[in-house]
């Protein structure tokens, strides 16, 4: 088990370094705001005093390393500054809205994983036959589909034409369905393509032949053995595409008027509310990193050999 813990420690250290890098980028990028960042953030109607106060508040008169240190210090105390737009604390706004985004991201991932793996397995077990071509088509269409357009199409179809589901907002359970499906389709396509190719690989392996030679039913061959082995690369893809899914969440939230942090991000960018942008992007990056640590942990559950690579 020592191997496992050193492996995990390594991953955790890498994750912390990445998050530090993300923070640095977020702090340093302010320097590139055209003109006087404080003026930009304060808005056109701000008085010179207001601008000066903001500059001081945000520590913009300090050097980048000092600002970076401040940022980390504040972060450590759970403080990410105040919104330039509303004057509220960035952290409290984010915590109020984050659950909605999490809900959407989890459901979207679930749709993507379940549908993607199912399609991929069907394609692999029907290689070069009609169903395989069908899945390939669904796959390439899925990765070509703009989420925002898909969302609009689904709204037109289900809400306007069929009058079935509420169009927007996060009030009821059924209002979750369209956004989750919209968000999940891209992941589904990526996961289906990956599952197909790894499953085809696995089904050609010697051990699969051994299992068949035992006279075991095909269902067991495919699901218990081949799919379990295919799971490590599939997990990697699930982890990596989670980033794309978060990007998609920003768009999906906008289409469905979903009250999560994605839509807040868009509004904040439009309002040039840089502190809020900083906070939200940081949270998105952290979510991505956490999810990838989780998939790393799952490797060890799926594949007994991973432990050795400590």
């Amino acid at each position: 088990m020592r191997g496992l813990s050193t492996y995990l420690m390594g991953r955790l250290v890498a994750a912390v370094i990445t998050l530090l890098g993300v923070s640095f980028v977020l702090v340093a990028l302010i320097q590139f705001l055209p003109g006087d960042p404080a003026r930009v953030i304060a808005g056109l109607r701000a008085t010179p005093e207001q601008v000066a106060r903001i500059r001081q508040q945000m520590g913009l008169d300090e050097s980048v390393p000092v600002q970076f240190w401040r940022f980390l210090e504040h972060l450590f105390h759970g403080n990410m500054g105040t919104s330039a737009r509303t004057g509220d604390s960035v952290v409290s706004e984010i915590t109020a809205r984050l659950p909605f985004t999490l809900e959407l991201a989890i459901l979207g991932t679930l749709v993507g994983v379940v549908a993607g793996i199912t399609l991929g397995v069907i394609a692999a077990t029907h290689k070069d036959r009609l169903l395989d071509s069908f899945v390939s088509m669904v796959g390439v269409m899925g990765i070509s589909m703009p989420v925002y357009w898909l969302g609009i199409l689904l709204i037109m179809l289900f809400s306007v034409k069929l009058q079935m589901l509420p169009v927007s907002g996060a009030a009821t359970l059924s209002s979750l369905v369209l956004p989750s499906v919209t968000l999940g389709v891209f992941s589904m396509a990526i996961i289906a393509r990956m599952t197909r190719s790894t499953m085809i690989d696995e089904l050609g392996q010697d051990y699969v032949r051994t299992v068949r030679a035992k006279g075991v039913v095909e269902r067991v061959v495919v699901y218990r053995h081949a799919l379990r082995n295919a799971f490590v690369p599939i997990l990697t893809v699930i982890g990596l595409q989670f980033g794309t899914l978060l990007g998609g969440a920003v768009l999906t939230e906008t289409v469905f008027a979903w009250p999560g942090i994605g839509r807040l991000l868009v509004d904040s960018i439009s309002a040039r509310d840089y502190p809020m942008v900083q906070g939200i992007v940081f949270v998105f990056a952290a979510m991505f990193i956490v999810v990838n640590i989780i998939t790393d942990l799952l490797y060890t559950v799926v594949d007994p050999r991973v432990r050795l690579y400590g």
Partner: peptide, 16 residues
């Protein structure tokens, strides 16, 4: 009919 396959290194399922 039982088969003892050629390469024992690759013939066992690594995750079971």
């Amino acid at each position: 009919i039982a088969l003892v396959p050629q390469d024992p290194m690759t013939c066992l399922d690594p995750v079971f």
